[in-house]
Design a protein around this nucleic acid. Sequence first.
DNA 1: ATGACTTGGCGTCCAAGA
Length: 262
Amino acid sequence: MRIATWNVNSVTVRLERLVAWLERSGTDVLCLQELKCDLAAFPAERLREAGYEAVVAGTGRWNGVAVLSRVGLEDPVVGLPGAPEYDGVVEPRAVSAVCAGVKVWSVYVPNGREVEHPHYAYKLKWLAALRGAVASDAAGERPFAVLGDFNVIPTDEDVWDIGVFDETSTHVTEAERAALADLRATGLRDVVPRPLKYDRPFTYWDYRQLAFPKNKGMRIDLVYGNSAFADAVRDAHVDREERKGKGASDHAPVVVDLEPMG
DNA sequence: ATGACTTGGCGTCCAAGA
């Protein structure tokens, strides 16, 4: 069984690339982030033709997440229980489903913008809510994973140059990394993928200043699985090929292969 | 090669991304 996560930076712009990638990669379950469309604009019909059911959260130009599955999709949940508001709104940043006996969350953690910005406090509250929402499944026997764009760089090795970050920078603060550690403490393990090129498995490269050809990337798209999930992982990789060419997202898919489950 | 940002929206610039 192949499970993946991909921040597509607009599912409507990326649609043909997405469908081609689903077919080429043989992915069974895909967690999507940054749909950037509302429910009416989500291409459910095109994806159904490709063989995938979907659970979707989306309200317009920002955010938006989905789980696609061609192996069944049960118990769909839209929205993170206990999610904080930002500017009086609960944003579409989490959906869940059970696919062929594996429960997954697709999450798009708030960016944070700057340490002094209200968005940063919101990010930490959101991560705390995520911990609360997944704790029971993390400790359970059923294979379970949280996949998505966490907007946190777990260690200094997960970015091309930690020196470019200063005291105003998000993604690398102690508090953000502590929030990830708290998440792991519920029983989740970081499923670190193989890079297909170079030494580190970056998943995001800025569109600007030739960041991708220079491999100025970071690892912020993560797969956190419980023991049943992590023990079943046969292989995992970042599909950097999908970052290439015209019309690419600025994130590459992270792909996880699981042993068949009885 | 992968090549100097991209996206969506009360749009012809702006906010947001990280």
